[in-house]
Design a protein around this nucleic acid. Sequence first.
DNA 1: GCGGTATTTAGCGAATGTGTTAATTAACAT
DNA 2: ATGTTAATTAACACATTCGCTAAATACCGC
Lengths: 117, 117
Amino acid sequence: MQSAQLDATFSALADPTRRAVLAELASGARTVNELAKPFDISLPAFSRHLKVLEQAGLITRGRDRQFRPCTIAPEPLREATDWMQQYRKLWDERLDRLDAYLAQLQSPTSTEDRDDD
Amino acid sequence: MQSAQLDATFSALADPTRRAVLAELASGARTVNELAKPFDISLPAFSRHLKVLEQAGLITRGRDRQFRPCTIAPEPLREATDWMQQYRKLWDERLDRLDAYLAQLQSPTSTEDRDDD
DNA sequence: GCGGTATTTAGCGAATGTGTTAATTAACAT
DNA sequence: ATGTTAATTAACACATTCGCTAAATACCGC
């Protein structure tokens, strides 16, 4: 996956309004007004959040009469999740080793003098 | 998980330099200069990337002589991954249903009404 | 066409993010 | 004490982001 797509995906996810929109879209397509209702911001402001999501490729928008129904587009989200999963695995292993190392420092019968601070 | 922590985590991940730092830290602790070496930006600029990661709780920094070794702090990353996983599951299911629906439209062996959302 | 609903674009200001260079702090070595 | 290395803070510029209100566009129903 190219860096720019991850940039856009994570950047889009870095806002609670946009995450809430994605969460809501898990239940199916919604119009702009339906999506906007829970939020205390103006419709133009909300519309731009949708634009961010769309330009990041996280949602797609159709046309149904005067409505523009929004739908989840899962591929970039899948890719971002994959990126995190891959490193999460490494991080977890890394931290497990660190834990083990720290445990080893504490448990042995080492009554050696220690540095103070 | 609180929204603000997810904000900070995704926001920190939205930059390729910072993602590369996290990737590198999967191999273990690194000093600032070690981490900065691959990048074409000034050290102050890089230092601020580390600050973003630290303030998001994604890395911790220690002190070893005049070095400040950086280490991964996996908990916020784990939480962000969990958030994505949770919704990824729903999104995938959602899209599976959509696929099935579209397939059914094309090969109408069934006379059922569409289930809506 | 005209009014009503749905949604976006335009224009503006404030806040934030990212980069730079210069200066500073902290620790080490002699 | 002085110089060197490691890293951060200060001060500044520029671009982007996010909110707002007002206006525009697109479609529907009469």
